[in-house]
Simulated scan of single mutants.
Amino acid sequence: MTDLTGKFFWYELMTSDPQAALAFYGDVVGWTHAPFGGDLGEPYHVVSGSAGPLGGVMAIPADAKDCGMTPWWGGYVGSADVDADAARLSAAGAKVMRAPEDIPGVGRFAVMADPGGAIFMLLKGASPDGMDVPAGMPPGHVGWHELYAGDFDKDLAFYTGALGWTRGEAMDMGEMGSYQLVSQTGGAAFPDMTGGIMPAPKEMPVPVWLFYFIVGDIDAAVERVTAGGGTVLQGPMEVPGGTWIIQATDPQGAMFALVGTRDAG
């Protein structure tokens, strides 16, 4: 069983039109979905990639909509003790946006903002059985985590300090600043990088975590995005390792990203 403490392991879309979003991502990424059987107060759809469940889709809650929330993807970080971690991370520069509380049949969670203002959630599952993070690059799952940091230096220190992530190579992006590779697994025995942190560009309205979903051929995926009413913001662009990425918004306006391959021919 994978130790999820300090790692992103569940991804959630809050959207203005859950059914349309499920159809869009089902076509673009290949997800299947099923309703969650628990009592969350709102319909919740669990989405699965090729290696099993990875996240959920739900409507933006009325109170959040009244506060101006627009469609967005959020990520849950595993916690062994949500209350203790919320306090500990606050002392390290984060901010509690929603105090720890229980979700019936799911577990205990809290909503946090890192020092630069990007939102993430803490979650301890109600069941002692944890989820296994799939190995490799299974289609439909998250292959990369990217933070557009509101405060690059403080955020990097926060994630590598308070959450125990490991720094990898730092790449100079000129006027855009530094792109710092990070690994959520931690320690020299786990050298694989799982994401990157970079300063939020001026075009980005707020600091945010961006999640890259794994697809096959990137060009075919681009066609599915545009055919389904999404908008490609950037790419396809080749990245180290021989893969290609795009950044896009879905038809409801939530930002997401894809990582795939391109036929050499």
Rank of each mutant, 00 (worst) to 15 (best):
Q180A: 09
Y159V: 14
T5A: 08
W144E: 00
V232W: 05
G140M: 00
A162N: 02
A21R: 01
M255G: 13
G68I: 15
A23V: 14
G241Y: 02
A59W: 02
A94I: 12
I218T: 07
T160S: 06
G229V: 06
A149S: 14
T243F: 07
H33S: 13
P139V: 10
G229Q: 05
V106G: 08
V57K: 02
V222S: 07
V111Y: 06
V225D: 01
V239Y: 05
Q252C: 10
L233T: 07
V111P: 03
D83T: 08
Q252L: 15
A162Q: 08
G241E: 12
W10T: 09
D83H: 14
A254I: 05
G168D: 03
V29W: 05
G230I: 02
G150Y: 06
A162V: 15
G105F: 07
P251V: 02
F109C: 14
A254W: 00
D83S: 14
L13C: 08
G216M: 02
W10Q: 04
M137S: 14
Y212H: 13
A87H: 15
G125I: 03
H141M: 01
M137V: 15
D85Y: 02
G55D: 04
G187V: 15
M173N: 07
G74I: 12
P138E: 05
K124R: 13
V232H: 11
T226D: 10
I245W: 09
D155M: 14
V96S: 11
P134Y: 06
R98G: 07
Y179Q: 05
V47D: 02
S50Y: 09
W144R: 03
